[in-house]
């Protein structure tokens, strides 16, 4: 499946899940701040992506599990170990901007439409080589 085909399907998922218009779902749009996704919408998005692309998504695979652990977070700020964990677990996400001001409360802002497309692309590639 081409990148454009994946984008179009992801766009459809977000239009249905979040009640937004097609043209709002741009590659750089952030799920929370631009498309107004709330925490429970993330569960809806996971379910819809599974259905749209026919694969299963494990818990914490697309969006992070609760990382509010003293090993990874100090005074509400994600530390170096936490950032390393996030980068390892979620290669589909660009954490560079978040790393400059890694407040835990802002971690959901890292998810863009492109990160979802990257995730799907990685999953499809992995299943093709399996």
């Amino acid at each position: 499946m081409s990148h454009d085909d994946i984008f179009t399907k992801v766009q459809g998922v977000l239009v249905d899940a979040l009640g937004v218009d097609d043209d709002e779902v741009t590659p750089t749009a952030r799920l929370t701040t631009d498309l107004h996704a709330e925490s429970i919408d993330f569960l809806d998005i996971v379910f819809r992506i599974e259905k749209a692309f026919g694969f299963k998504i494990g818990q914490g695979e697309l969006f992070p599990d609760n990382i509010n652990d003293p090993k990874y977070v100090n005074d509400g700020v994600v530390n170096a170990a936490g950032l390393a964990l996030l980068r390892e677990k979620m290669p589909h996400v660009d954490f560079s901007a978040f790393a400059a001001d890694p407040k835990l409360e802002k971690v959901s802002e890292v998810f863009t439409v492109t990160s979802l497309v990257n995730f799907v692309q990685n999953k499809l590639a992995a299943s093709a080589t399996a």
Binding site: L43, D44, F47, E50, K51, Q59
Partner: peptide, 10 residues
């Protein structure tokens, strides 16, 4: 039930 996991169900 359409789909269910530890987090919830659709």
């Amino acid at each position: 039930i359409e789909r269910m996991d530890d987090m919830g169900a659709s």
